[in-house]
Amino acid sequence: MENIETGQLIKLTVNEQSKEIYVRNSETLLHTLREKLGLMGVKPGCYNGDCGSCTVLIDGIPINACHILSVEAVGYQIMTIEGLKDQTIPEEFIKNWAIQCGYCTPGFILNSYALVQNNPDADDAAIDEWLESNICRCTGYQEIKESVKNILNVKR
């Protein structure tokens, strides 16, 4: 390797735990979370920030893990589906049949969780604005929307 620093030892805070790992600078958080930390709930779908399957929360904000470098995530609270303690949303997804193949589910659940946390008064337009970030290829989306609406209604 040439005499330049193209990788480094970093500390990431993932699901409230501090993790020390060596990463390449050009490594995406998607790769690091899956391959180095074994967090397989982060699902690759497009590697291009287009589908929302690998959504994780960075300081509570949904971010596509394929569209952020691991070195960028230093200093933030990273949450993956494995770190979601509040089971309200997963339970509502189950109740509403919002899961079929399950591949888009972690991304949808984390995005929905962030929506409910950040915008408990979300109206239909806000729900649309948030959920259109994620592609589901199985359900037709209605069940997912209903899940989110039910939770918002209970919160209100």
Binding site: R34, E35, G38, M40, G41, V42, K43, P44, T80, I81, E82, P90, E91, F93, I94, W97, I99, G102, Y103, T105, P106, I109
Partner: peptide, 19 residues
């Protein structure tokens, strides 16, 4: 569904999840 709890928690393993 019989597969729902694991899927809702992101714990279901797909082919590329087997390291």
């Amino acid at each position: 569904r019989v597969d729902i709890a694991d899927k809702a928690s992101g714990r279901t393993k797909y082919t590329n999840d087997l390291s």
